[in-house]
Design a protein around this nucleic acid. Structure first.
Length: 585
RNA sequence: CGGAGCGUAGCGCAGCCUGGUAGCGCGUUUGGUUCGGGACCAAAAGGUCGAGGGUUCAACUCCCUCCGCUCCGACCA
């Protein structure tokens, strides 16, 4: 392909709307252009890279035994009513009506469609296990689209769904996808970390996210260097350290006019924030509950929601708080509350603490939770952070940030129940299919590659997903000899199946070098009159500083060799053992 | 949805406070000199200053409304 015939403009300046490097580079290198917030056009170079990623995804899905299908993006709302998710998805789902006023949805995901499909197609255990997948556009009305392709309203996703006859068989399907994901990301040149994750609205009981470690990531990840435990912060647990303060003088009341926040309390009482018990009033599916955590801790609402097994958790409005506690904001406490009280496990046995007194401008001190309050249950309810103890081995955890590029779920029978997806076993008995679902954000993966693979000069593509394997710089486009060499080399490389991008523009060499660095193809070949006089063309890797001069006659073979070496370094080695800890514990 | 910031040529920006009808750099076109790490000279094209309304003799500039974009937050008592 020739630059002069390609819709490609590189930009010298960072685009004003871009915040993170990968987004800036995608725009500057001419891979994408913004249409509106969260909506992007892929230009030819971006499209090529995207195709490379989807090709790897397809190859690994096929290798894992999944079958490609294609489901509609536009779906009847009744499917969503049937699973109960029409309400659960809320305004996150794009809704519209057809001319017959029938409510439709632009699919944010496809559990409903696929389960309904399999319920109709599969009736015998002989047809199972069955895993299907598709690569398709998803629509989500994101509250805040961000960072280019990282969080867009329309994006490309690979979603796969497995159906099995038993939990054990479903575990095997899950493991197969988990292993396939590991290979996919490795072949894309990404370093990913699988972490235990919250299942969120999708439902189910077990899931892993595949995280690309990056400071710009939207998710917090905690992991343990000692034992390998790793989890999304939303789900992460910590080893409890129950308080053991036996002696506690009697409860006493302290006037604290206007002292509401932990910060104010800390200076008022002149003691550490963990001396306080923070009492928050939540509405769990509309019913008020009190949640107690140490003053220096935050409540993890994901954990709370899962523990209480409710659909919705929200902090109570001031009005409700006053009704429940009898005090304005800042003076809630566990003593004498008539609603359920849930306390973080670290508060078990807590004595000599300070809490609100459920009366304006008043706190209690010398509170013993066991003696002075009725706690319904103790549970791990706080957000885990750096320095907390690993729930498995007790060593300190570290906190990092990550980009979620893939997510695998064990769904169980949530959807197969809703859609009555059953089969007959060898004894003629009816059984319910057990399901798993598996997603890869393809467009997000592409951007994550750039976020992880770039330097000050531009993108440093892994060979497997680069728009072109080779940049061929034609330095003297008016020199017939050089043009001839380039044309010949281009043809030879294409004959070997190596994609070449020829910069044949009427530009000065410096411009071409800068653009080649920006676009970041793994192998750069320079053909110019000076080089030819010195004996050939110059070959240099995007990652290297050294160039080699190769005679024209041998150039194609040498370049092909370099490209192969780069690609096979990334290619999955199928005999490599699967990554452990895939959720079978 | 709440808070903050920004909308001026294809891109990046100045001008606005203190009103007088728009400028810089990059890019583009033409000509010339250059030619191995974002060249130089000369000329040129390109803007209803986000939209609408108001104030004024006069609005990019002041006021109001709306729209769009970006960032922070979505909650810590």
């Amino acid at each position: 392909m020739r630059w002069s015939r390609t819709l490609l403009n590189t930009l010298r300046d960072d685009p004003q709307e871009a915040e993170i490097n990968s987004h800036k580079l995608m725009v500057r290198a001419g891979l994408i252009r913004k249409v509106a917030g969260g909506l992007y056009t892929f230009l030819p170079l971006g499209m090529r890279a995207l195709h490379k990623v989807t090709r790897i995804v397809r190859e690994e899905m096929d290798r894992a035994g999944a079958q490609e299908i294609l489901m509609p993006a536009l779906q009847p709302a009744e499917l969503w009513e049937r699973s109960g998710r029409l309400a659960a998805m809320g305004p996150g789902m794009f809704r519209l009506k057809d001319r017959a006023e029938r409510l439709m949805a632009l699919g944010p995901t496809h559990e409903e469609v696929v389960t309904s499909l399999l319920a109709g197609e599969v009736s015998s255990y002989r047809q199972l296990p069955c895993t299907v997948y598709q690569v398709q556009t998803k629509f989500r009305d994101e509250i805040r689209p961000r960072f280019g392709l990282m969080r867009a309203k329309e994006f490309l996703m690979k979603d796969a769904y497995s159906f099995d006859t038993s939990m054990e068989a479903a575990d095997r399907s899950y493991q197969a996808m988990y292993d396939a994901y590991t290979r996919i990301f490795r072949r894309c040149g990404l370093r990913v970390k699988p972490v235990e994750a919250d299942t969120g609205d999708i439902g189910g009981n077990w899931s892993h996210e595949f995280m690309v470690l990056a400071d710009s990531g939207e998710d917090g990840i905690v992991d343990c260097a000692a034992c390998g435990y790793a989890a999304n912060q939303e789900r992460a647990e910590r080893m409890g350290t129950p308080a053991a303060e036996a002696v506690c003088p009697p409860l006493s009341e302290v006037p604290t006019p206007g002292v509401r926040t932990i910060e104010e309390l800390t200076s008022f009482f002149a003691c550490a924030p963990d001396r306080f018990i923070k009492t928050l009033i939540y509405l769990a599916d509309g019913k008020p509950v009190a949640v107690l955590v140490p003053g220096d801790r935050d409540v993890n609402e994901h954990k709370l929601k899962r523990f209480l097994n409710v659909k919705k958790i929200e902090l109570a409005e001031e009005e409700i708080l006053i009704r429940v506690t009898g005090a304005p904001v800042g003076f809630a406490g566990p003593v004498g509350l008539s609603i359920p009280v849930y306390a973080d496990r670290s508060l078990e046995g807590a004595g000599d603490r300070i809490t609100g007194a459920n009366r304006a401008d008043t706190h209690f001190q010398q509170v013993s939770l066991a003696r002075d309050a009725r706690v319904t249950a103790f549970e791990d309810l706080t957000v885990v952070g750096a320095g907390d103890r690993c729930p498995r081995c007790g060593k300190p955890l570290q906190l990092r940030r990550g980009i979620e590029v893939g997510h695998v779920f064990k769904l169980g029978t949530k959807y197969t129940e809703a859609f009555d997806a059953v089969y007959l076993n060898e004894k003629g008995q009816s059984g319910r299919m057990v399901m798993g679902c598996y997603g890869i954000g393809v467009t997000r993966t592409l951007q994550a590659v750039i976020e992880q693979c770039h330097d000050a000069d531009g993108i440093v593509w892994p060979a497997s997903v680069a728009p072109f394997a080779v940049s061929l710089l034609l330095l003297d486009p008016r020199d017939e000899q050089v043009c001839g060499v380039v044309a010949q080399l281009e043809a030879e490389l294409e004959a070997c199946g190596i994609d070449v991008f020829v910069d044949d523009r009427e530009e000065r060499p410096g411009v071409k070098f800068k653009d080649a660095d920006l676009i970041g193809c793994p192998v750069r070949v320079v053909a110019g009159a000076k080089g030819l006089a010195k004996g050939g063309v110059e070959i240099r890797l995007r990652t290297g500083k050294e160039s080699e001069i190769v005679p024209v006659g041998q150039a194609a073979a040498v370049i092909a060799d370099r490209v192969r070496a780069l690609t096979s370094a990334l290619d999955a080695k199928t005999d490599e053992p699967a990554v452990r800890g895939a959720g079978n514990e």
